[in-house]
Structures are given as structure tokens and as C-alpha cells.
Design a protein around this nucleic acid. Structure first.
Length: 419
RNA sequence: CGGGGUGUAGCGCAGCUUGGUAGCGCGGCUGGUUUGGGACCAGUAGGUCGUAGGUUCGAAUCCUAUCACCCCGACCA
């Protein structure tokens, strides 16, 4: 990509309607723009980050044998009436009618759709277990959306569903997903924790939450040194406050704030029962299927990652989700043909080596360009002017470092390949 | 839904109390001088002041209604 023909939307002034740092920086760095309350468009830089996160999730889902699908987001009321949630889900469910006055809702979650999908096509227990996931927008008509993309009405979620002949199989797969989730959050390079949790409106009897730790988190967590812990809200329902104090002392737990970015549930037969999804097992005994569901707030992870990684200059992306690996910053290329062609050459080399690079060939001053790429959080900046073009070197500056290092192109490439 | 607040140029804001037909900074464009961390000078474009109605000779300003957005709370991934 070349910046001269790539839509960037950085701003110099702080946006007025943002409170928390991630929201401010996402607007300022031009990752998103608000469309209406709780709804955002992803601009090129923001969408690249989203895609990076999606791909990590995809790889780990595929690795445990969960298959990607895509389901329609406008869902008929009949299925929701069958599960009982047409009544119980409340105002958060956005309902609408089509031209024939048939009732629909915009999917906040997809248990009904996938249960219906599976019951139509499942013929034998031998086809089990089934594991499928999708990455798509969900709509929840929140009472009060806030903090930008953190609590949006329309957001991107990965939702996986599993179907099993018995609880033992569900338990195994629950562990598989747990494992995959740990891999995902490790690869995202975020400081996170997994806690026991309540399963809320979704139902079932066992669930775990994954939280990214950040000051601005909305959840209160009690965590030990290994980063394992419990959601305080859940602890309160299970224990008396005196007992909680005792547990905190005995286990040396500390209070931290978390942003919930993942939640996995054992649903049991909640949906298979209400929606009549059953099958004969090896003994010809008819069983309701055991189900699990596994969510990750993909778009929320962007905000969570920023809450955890920023400084006064802007975002500092973990390498795994940075929109670009490297920004080549050309100094006055429009006035200096040798600088321009030298940059171009380096840019081509990087492209050939599959380095995710953007060449800043805009007619703008060095300071402005550096400020932009620091704001956008690009981990590596390569500065090239007359000096570098003449000496066949590059100047490398890492995001967050103050000093700049002069390198040969070979040194630079091997440095990149090492990472 | 209860409480608080804000809508004026692409972004950030002033003007409103005390009505006289809109201004500042940043950004944009043009020209020149600069040039290795947000340059300077000159010029220039861009707003029916959220919307509708009312009061008035005259409304960004006063009154009424309405919409949108932000923050706190209940709720929630």
C-alpha cells in the first residue's frame, strides 16, 4: 500500500464525544467513524486490525476442528418463539416486520438458527459431534451503548456452537475450546485471564469468561498470581461477603478490572429440548443433544487491546494485530527522484517478502508523518531521505523507542525476518 | 426510562446573559520562502448556527416543540 492513494483519516484534535482512551484513539487514528449511537463504520486501518484478529481466531478454530459457516442475521420469529426467547429476551432484541407483515429479529446470537439448521440435516449420532462457527455482525439494542466500539449495538462477534450425543463429549469439547481460546488470547499478545462466570440470558449450567485486563474494564475480577480468578459479581452470588474477604486473603487474590472479550458456555439441552433436537444413540436410545456455545467479541478486542497498549503519542499495537508491520517514511520524495526510487525499491522488496508494509509517499513533512504512524501504532518506522539513499542504508525507529538506528537493507530484512 | 450535558465550517471551539444577519485555532486549496520531529508569509474556499414553529422591523442569540449525540444509573458481551 502507498499512503498517497490509501484512505487515512487521522485527526489532530481530540474528538469531543469520546471519554475513554481507546475510543479517543480509534477516532483520532481514523480506525472507525460513528454512524449513529452504538454503530460504527470500520475505516481501512481499523478494518485491517479487525481482519488480523479474525484470522487468528479462524486459525485456532480450524485447528480444533470447528468449521466456519455464515448464517443470516435477520431471523424469523417462529424459531425464537420455539426456544421461548421471543418472550424472554426483551427489548434488547431488535424486532421488525417484512412486507408480508411477518415478524423477524436481527440476530443478537444464533442458537435458534443453528439448532434449526442442525435438526434439519442430522440423521445419525455417527455424525456427531458437530462444531461450527461464524464471524459476523450481531445486533443488540443495548439500553445505553457506550465507550465507542466497546459496548456497541452492532458489533462483530465470533460465535461457535457444538452438538454432542452426551455430556462427556460436551465436556471434552468444552476443554478443546478453552484450549483454543487460550491460544487465541496468547497470540493476540494481550494480558488476559479466564474466570468462572454466570451464564446470563443464554442459559446452561457452566461457563467461563475471558477478560482482557485494563483499568477501564467494566467487570471486577479477583485474580491470583497465575492470572486465574473469579468474577466478583459471581463470587457475590456464591459466597457471603465475609467469606469472600477470607478467600481473597487465603489465596492472595488481587482486585483487577477486566474487559470481557470471550465467553464459553455449556448449554446442555436447553435449546435441543425446546427446539426438539434429538437423535438415537448407539443403543437406539433417543437423546436430546448436548450443546455448547463459544463467543468472542472480535470488535471489542480492538478497543481492549488499545486500552492495554498506548502512550501519549497514540496506539501501540501488539505485533500480531498491527494494521501494518512497517511504515516506510519517505522524506521529500516528491522533490528528490533518488529518494523516491530508493523507497520504491525497498517497498517492492518488502512486498516480495510478504512484509506488510505501507509506503508513506505523501507530500508532507517528516514530523507530520511520524506523528501519524505513531498515532496509528505501527511497530516499525523506516525513515528514508537523502542520507539513506546516498549511503544505501535505512533509519529504523521502533514505536515507543526514542532513538533511531541506522541499518543496511540486509540488516533490516534479517531483523524483520527474525521477528 | 430517571438525572446531567452538548448540537455553530472537515476537526476542536468562541459568540447567546444584554437580538442588528457569524468568528477563532487546526485542517484544505494557491503562490512563495523553508525543509531530518506537527514550519513561516501572503492569498483563498468552506457554515440557510440540529430541525420545525413562534415572538420581533430584525433571531445563532428570546419562547415552544422536536430530533440527534455524550456522560452517570438500572441492564448487558
Amino acid at each position: 500500500m502507498k499512503a498517497s492513494s490509501y484512505p487515512l483519516f487521522t485527526q489532530k484534535n481530540d474528538p469531543s464525544d469520546a471519554e475513554i482512551i481507546s475510543h479517543k484513539l480509534m477516532l483520532k487514528a481514523g480506525l472507525v467513524r460513528q454512524q449513529s449511537t452504538g454503530q460504527y463504520s470500520f475505516l481501512p486501518i481499523g478494518y485491517r486490525v479487525l481482519r488480523k484478529i479474525e484470522n487468528i481466531i479462524r486459525e485456532e478454530m480450524n485447528a480444533i476442528g470447528s468449521a466456519e459457516i455464515l448464517m443470516p442475521s435477520v431471523q424469523p420469529s417462529e424459531l425464537w418463539q420455539e426456544s421461548g426467547r421471543w418472550e424472554t429476551y426483551g427489548l434488547e432484541l431488535l424486532r421488525l416486520n417484512d412486507r408480508h407483515d411477518r415478524e423477524y429479529c436481527v440476530g443478537p446470537t444464533f442458537e435458534e438458527i443453528i439448532t434449526d439448521l442442525v435438526r434439519r440435516d442430522l440423521n445419525s449420532y455417527k455424525q456427531l459431534p458437530l462444531n461450527m462457527y461464524q464471524i459476523s455482525s450481531k445486533f443488540r439494542d443495548e439500553i445505553r451503548p457506550r465507550f465507542g466500539i466497546m459496548r456497541a449495538r452492532e458489533f462483530i462477534m465470533k460465535d461457535a456452537y457444538s452438538f454432542h450425543i452426551d455430556e462427556k463429549c460436551l465436556d471434552n469439547w468444552y476443554q478443546n475450546y478453552k484450549h483454543a481460546y487460550n491460544n487465541i488470547f496468547k497470540r493476540l499478545q494481550l494480558e488476559y485471564t479466564m474466570v468462572d462466570a454466570d451464564s446470563g440470558n443464554i442459559g446452561g449450567n457452566k461457563s467461563n469468561e475471558f477478560h482482557v485486563l485494563a483499568e477501564t474494564g467494566e467487570d471486577d475480577l479477583l485474580i491470583d498470581e497465575k492470572g486465574i480468578g473469579i468474577n466478583l459479581e459471581i463470587a457475590k452470588t456464591k459466597y457471603h461477603s465475609d467469606d469472600i474477604k477470607k478467600i481473597v486473603k487465603e489465596n492472595n487474590l488481587t482486585h483487577k478490572k477486566g474487559i470481557e472479550v470471550g465467553h464459553i458456555f455449556k448449554l446442555g439441552d436447553k435449546y435441543s429440548k425446546s427446539m426438539k433436537l434429538s437423535i438415537a444413540d448407539a443403543n437406539s436410545k433417543i437423546n436430546h443433544l448436548q450443546m455448547g456455545c463459544y463467543g468472542i467479541g472480535v470488535s471489542r478486542i480492538i478497543a481492549a487491546a488499545i486500552e492495554q497498549n498506548y502512550d501519549e503519542s497514540g496506539i501501540i499495537w501488539p505485533k500480531s494485530i498491527s494494521p501494518f508491520e512497517i511504515a516506510i517514511i519517505e522524506i521529500d520524495g516528491h522533490k528528490n527522484e533518488s529518494v523516491k526510487s530508493y523507497c520504491n525499491q525497498l517497498y517492492q522488496t518488502m512486498n516480495k517478502n510478504n512484509v506488510e508494509v505501507i509506503l508513506d509517499d505523501r507530500e508532507s513533512k517528516l514530523g507530520n508523518k511520524l506523528h501519524d504512524w505513531e498515532l496509528m501504532g505501527i511497530p516499525n518506522m523506516i525513515i528514508i531521505g537523502k542520507k539513506e539513499a546516498e549511503n544505501n542504508t535505512v533509519t529504523h525507529k521502533k514505536r515507543g523507542d526514542t532513538e533511531k538506528v541506522s541499518l543496511s537493507i540486509d540488516q533490516l530484512m534479517s531483523k524483520i525476518n527474525k521477528n
